[in-house]
Write a protein that binds this DNA or RNA. Structure first.
Lengths: 158, 158
DNA sequence: CCGCCGAGTTGCATGACGCAACTGCATGTG
DNA sequence: CACATGCAGTTGCGTCATGCAACTCGGCGG
């Protein structure tokens, strides 16, 4: 246990980071939005060590951000899906993605978010630049940009 | 250096987290938005260890998220202010704040964001709920909610 | 001179993370 | 039957990140 935690701060930013700020956690949540479900898939996508992944998944389930559901019985095997609480982290993921597109990959964004229905780009307020609709996670899809980050037209969430 | 870094991933979320994902970094950025400038003030607000704070400030200056400017000469003393690149992290901070208000402090948000000009609440798209204006960091102020997180009407940024 | 202040720096201890092998419970094949 | 493979973890140990608390330095003031 870290000697100094944020949770003595009465602050929502600190409170959120106490839950999702550990190394790798937001990448797991990102991958859940991108359709990952099983342990091996999270591990392959993130490249993280298996012991850390197991610990993070357990924490996310405890925090009710992911829900663990069995997909078979012999042996019992689980999938990890976002809860509503987890889905509500979408603005965090999108804001990181948009900041990264601009400052980490300037002019060569690996992934672009587009409005599924009309193809418009998602602006910094998560509003469709073409039709003006306020967008939620089920309204958008990720497209490969010029930087080559993912397969085309993957859905968020699947 | 960590054995597995995110930066092998061609992904903007990962790229952003490689820059701002270290422990305490986003809280420093939060405090910069809340008006902190000097070393001692960041240290007092965050409660973090001085060696870590020094390292983080140096990293943020290197990454051009904070700008270090001298405020005196004998001895030379510095202030740390957000650059435009740093200010563009505001959606990240706001989304964490809003998620935390809802799920870490349900019904007792410590801090609420309001539109300075008309007093309307800031919605999840960072749009004024009263007048419909798309809001940026200079358009809003933080108000104490019912959870007692900060002094009233502090400005973001000062 | 001493004391205080602010901005760090330093040395060491503790905890987080990574590595790589292992375990357990299956299923499939020869 | 034995062995191989797959999946989802678990384990033991080493390395690195963070925290603690003292220290240093360059001032200023009494």
């Amino acid at each position: 246990m870290l000697g100094r935690t944020y949770d003595s701060q009465i602050c929502s930013v600190a409170g959120s980071l106490e839950v999702v700020g550990e190394r790798w956690t937001l990448l797991i949540i990102r991958d859940a939005f991108m359709g990952a479900r099983r342990f091996e898939e999270y591990q392959r996508r993130t490249g993280m060590a298996r012991n850390i992944l197991a610990a993070r998944l357990n924490r996310l389930v405890d925090e009710d951000i992911l829900k663990r559901t069995p997909y078979q019985e012999h042996p019992v095997r689980y999938e990890y899906r976002l809860t509503e609480k987890g889905i509500d982290l979408w603005p965090v993921i999108v804001s990181l993605l948009q900041w990264g597109n601009r400052y980490v990959y300037p002019g060569r964004a690996p992934v672009l978010l587009v409005h599924k229905r009309c193809g418009g780009a998602v602006d910094e307020h998560r509003i469709c630049e073409t039709c003006g609709t306020k967008l939620g996670p089920r309204d958008v899809e990720a497209r490969a940009g010029v930087g080559g980050g993912m397969a085309p037209a993957e859905k968020i969430p699947a």
